[in-house]
Design a protein around this nucleic acid. Structure first.
Length: 115
DNA sequence: CAAGTGACAAAAG
DNA sequence: CCTTTTGCCACTT
């Protein structure tokens, strides 16, 4: 049975982004741009963001994805922002004045995540 | 088909 | 620290 429906492929791109986000280890964080890059999109930061916004999987560690400058994408004071910050701290991620402590000189693992 | 939109990014002032 | 501008990609109207 060949590919019957014209849209049988759906969106492997979104699935890829989901897979990348799911691959982020607990206690570590990544940025939308990096996630998109690992998913095959050189400049798909917005795509990654859109995919996460549309995602409904509660098992997806969406909270491990932040902005490139280490800040949470949601507005400060928002419920989503609070929840994300809470989850990150619960995993051991340090937040300094609302932004994630950058992996300045951490283990190679973190470096691998970011680069 | 044109314009608007978004959990973005980097540069410039 | 701030705002503005440009680039980017897929989707929506």
């Amino acid at each position: 049975m060949s590919c019957a429906t014209p849209d049988a492929d759906e969106a492997p791109l979104a699935e890829r982004i989901i897979a990348v986000v799911r691959a982020i280890p607990a206690g570590s964080v990544s940025s939308y741009g990096v996630v998109a890059r690992r998913a095959g999109l050189a400049r798909g930061a917005r795509l990654a963001a859109r995919v996460l916004s549309r995602n409904e999987d509660p098992t997806l560690p969406w909270h491990r994805v932040v902005r490139a400058d280490g800040r949470i994408a949601f507005p400060v004071g928002s419920a989503a922002h609070d929840e994300q910050a809470r989850r990150l701290q619960a995993e051991g991620v340090r937040l300094v004045r609302g932004r994630v402590a950058m992996p300045h000189r951490q283990d190679d693992l973190d470096a691998a995540i970011w680069g």
